[in-house]
Write a protein that binds this DNA or RNA. Structure first.
Ligand SMILES: [Zn+2]
Ligand SMILES: [Zn+2]
Ligand SMILES: [Zn+2]
Ligand SMILES: [Zn+2]
Lengths: 126, 126
DNA sequence: GACAGTTTTGACAACCGTTTTCATTTTCCT
DNA sequence: AGGAAAATGAAAACGGTTGTCAAAACTGTC
């Protein structure tokens, strides 16, 4: 798994928002790349397994992917309108999650945190 | 929408973990209730519209529902093994989300936060 | 109670994103 | 070049969810 995996990774690196498999597939086809939808799905899950892309689920259950610049644990601030995404750190949140878990006797704590809003460009000069 | 909506709500109130539509449907049928899967789905989305149940997506995209005791904004600490769920508050997290959004010029901030772990019963006396 | 109008129900089909299958193509190594 | 192994993609299968539509249940009125 290499040729197309890199192609998919490249698409994601060029994008600053989360993208769906179908979305990526359509873009690649529209610029003449000959690739199958199945391969896009496989590339995405390989990239995710390797920790090279982040994935999250939209409200309607679609998986969307992003090649994040940061290799370490972080979260996302996503514009509801244009999808633009900023990677953010939240040391306080990390500590809070651990603490709240411990407080109730839970171990091996993990968490998911996403922040949504409307970015400056999209809320715009009214 | 009433009879079956209440029945579904009741099932959820009796459960302390998040449940899927299929799951609820199977339980209801197994105790002799005559209800259709479609109706369960409709009841769940109605309850959610009314803000009476919380919904979240599992990693594989399935929607799961829970009738939370708290009517106000809160988050969940979920056991990966048995599903047992504790409602938790995180004032620090609320403030952090607002602040991080504002810091990047985003407005109308919302967020999703879920904490996962293994509960005391499930991690058990090794 | 009978009746007409409205709402709810549920079997079934349609949808849609994702995964599996499997035969073909490409890549890699000698 | 030759053969084994990995990658590819078209099409079928899958699983959760939503749409369809005719039948059933509920509503209020005479
Ligand atoms: Zn925006
Ligand atoms: Zn974190
Ligand atoms: Zn547990
Ligand atoms: Zn919150």
């Amino acid at each position: 798994m290499s040729r197309s995996r890199d192609a998919v990774h490249e698409i994601l690196r060029r994008s600053e928002s989360f993208r769906s498999a179908q979305d990526i597939f359509t873009e690649m086809r529209s610029v003449g790349a000959k690739i199958g939808l199945t391969t896009v799905y496989r590339a995405l899950q390989a990239l995710n397994d390797d920790g090279r892309v982040d994935v999250l689920r939209t409200d309607d259950g679609e998986a969307v992917y992003r090649a994040c610049a940061s290799g370490v644990h972080h979260h996302h601030l996503v514009c509801r309108a244009c999808g633009r995404t900023v990677e953010v750190a939240g040391p306080d949140v990390e500590r809070w999650a651990e603490a709240i878990g411990a407080e109730h006797g839970f171990v091996e704590i993990t968490h998911t945190v996403e922040v949504f809003g409307t970015c400056a460009d999209c809320s715009g000069p009214r």
